[in-house]
Design a protein around this nucleic acid. Structure first.
Length: 106
DNA sequence: AAATTGACGGTTA
DNA sequence: GTAACCGCCAATT
């Protein structure tokens, strides 16, 4: 078998967490990094998303940065979140106070 | 093996 | 609230 998918183990951890985000909730890159045990690796989380195979159905659009804002290189993310019932504030930020997923609380 | 890049976080101004 | 700089770690080339 050829390894077409040389998916780094680190990314898999990220995918697992991202895939666990419930509908109508959002999580920050740093939040994911913290859940996988790498609080300093927030950047890798984003890199994992970009490299994420679409077949995994990762709700990457539910992942926002610490500012509560959507990804800077992503044009449609905002529309996707609104489609899930998430409301953006006029300044373009998500109401993290309400939509930020709390894995330990669930 | 080395150097560069990167969908970021946090702090300071 | 916004803007700019630094730091951190791993993947990619």
């Amino acid at each position: 078998m050829q390894k077409e998918y040389t998916v780094p183990p680190f990314f898999i951890e990220v995918y697992s967490v991202v895939a666990a985000i419930p509908y109508g909730k959002v999580l920050t890159y740093g939040g994911i990094a913290r859940l996988i045990g790498r609080p300093q690796n927030s950047r890798m989380v984003g890199q994992a998303m970009w490299s994420a195979p679409e077949g995994l159905k990762l709700p990457c659009h539910r992942v926002v940065n610490s500012s509560g804002r959507a990804a800077p290189h992503w044009p449609q993310q905002r529309g996707l979140l609104e489609g899930e019932g998430i409301v953006f504030k006029p300044n373009g930020c998500v109401d993290m106070k309400k939509y930020l997923w709390d894995p330990e609380k669930e």
